Amino acid sequence: MIAVTGATGTVGGLVARLLADDGPVRLLARDPARAAELGIPGEAVAADFDDPASLVAALAGAHALFVVTANPLRPEHDPNLLTAARESGVRHVVKLSALAVADERADDLITRWQRRNEDLVRACGLPWTILRPRSFMSNSLAWASSIRTRGVVQAADGTSRNACVAPEDIAAVAALALTGGAGEGMTYPLTGPEALSAAEQTAVLAEVLGRPVRFVGTTPEQAYEAWSRRYPEPVAQALLHSARRQRDGAKELVDPTVEKLLGRPALTYRDWAHQHRHDFL
Rank of each mutant, 00 (worst) to 15 (best):
V4I: 01
T5W: 11
G9S: 07
V11G: 09
G12P: 00
R17K: 14
L19D: 13
R26H: 11
L28D: 02
P32Y: 00
P32T: 04
P32K: 05
A35F: 10
E37I: 09
G39R: 02
E43Y: 00
A44R: 04
F49D: 08
D50S: 10
D51T: 07
P52L: 00
A57C: 02
G61P: 06
A62V: 05
H63Q: 11
T69F: 05
T69M: 10
T69W: 12
P72R: 14
P75E: 09
P75T: 07
H77R: 09
D78W: 02
L82R: 01
A85Q: 03
R86D: 13
G89E: 10
V90S: 00
R91N: 11
V93K: 02
V94W: 01
K95E: 11
L96F: 09
L99F: 06
A100M: 13
E104D: 14
R105A: 11
D107T: 12
I110W: 10
T111A: 07
R112Y: 05
R112G: 09
R116T: 15
R122N: 06
C124D: 01
C124G: 01
G125S: 04
L126Q: 04
R134S: 15
S146E: 15
S146I: 13
I147C: 00
T149C: 03
A156I: 10
A156D: 14
G158E: 02
G158N: 01
R161N: 10
C164H: 10
P167N: 03
I170P: 05
A177M: 02
G180M: 10
E184K: 07
M186L: 11
Y188D: 03
G192S: 09
E194V: 12
A195P: 03
A203G: 00
A206E: 03
V208G: 01
R211W: 06
V213M: 03
A223M: 07
W227C: 04
R229F: 10
R229Y: 08
Y231S: 09
P232I: 07
A236S: 03
L240Q: 06
A243V: 00
R244Y: 08
D248S: 11
K251E: 13
L253S: 11
V254Y: 14
P256G: 06
R264L: 08
P265Q: 15
A266D: 06
A273V: 05
H274F: 04
R277V: 02
